[in-house]
């Protein structure tokens, strides 16, 4: 199931927002190059729902990252893995932009999510 979270234009380049997707807090990021990422908002190191308030970045090898604002742990946005503690990871969500709206689905690996065609004009949940 895709959830429409906001208009793409509401997202600030380089910054994230928190969204509720099927009852779960998700951090949705629009990076400076326009790409979108969605990961769990809960910082596994401290239990606070703050990942969306972190600073995004790019490592020298091109990895897109976010640093949790709490203790500055850095996560790979594509895989959710904590760069300095590979056994810790954030859940990763599927995220798409369709007709100006950002959609998030819970399971990044499911075929439905990856191959989904968004045929209906979305209505925003507000």
């Amino acid at each position: 199931m895709w959830t429409a979270v906001c208009k793409y234009s509401q997202l600030e380049p380089g910054r994230g927002v928190a969204a509720l997707v099927e009852g779960e807090a998700v951090a949705v990021f629009r990076l400076r190059d326009g790409s979108l990422y969605a990961v769990g908002n809960l910082d596994p190191f401290c239990g606070a729902s703050v990942i969306s308030r972190g600073i995004t970045g790019m490592r020298g090898d091109g990895t897109a990252t976010v640093a949790s604002p709490m203790y500055k742990d850095v996560f790979d946005l594509a895989t959710g893995v904590a760069l300095d503690a590979p056994d810790v990871r954030l859940p990763v969500f599927a995220v798409r932009r369709h007709r100006g709206v950002v959609w998030v689905a819970p399971d990044v690996t499911s075929q439905t999510a990856a191959g989904a065609e968004l045929l209906t004009e979305p209505t925003l949940v507000t």
């Binding site: 429409a4 906001c6 928190a18 969204a19 509720l20 807090a25």
Partner: peptide, 15 residues
């Protein structure tokens, strides 16, 4: 920017 959730600005953050 101060909304708790972009798609549910008034919903409380349970954490």
């Amino acid at each position: 920017r101060f909304a708790t959730f972009v798609n549910a600005p008034q919903a409380p953050d349970p954490t």
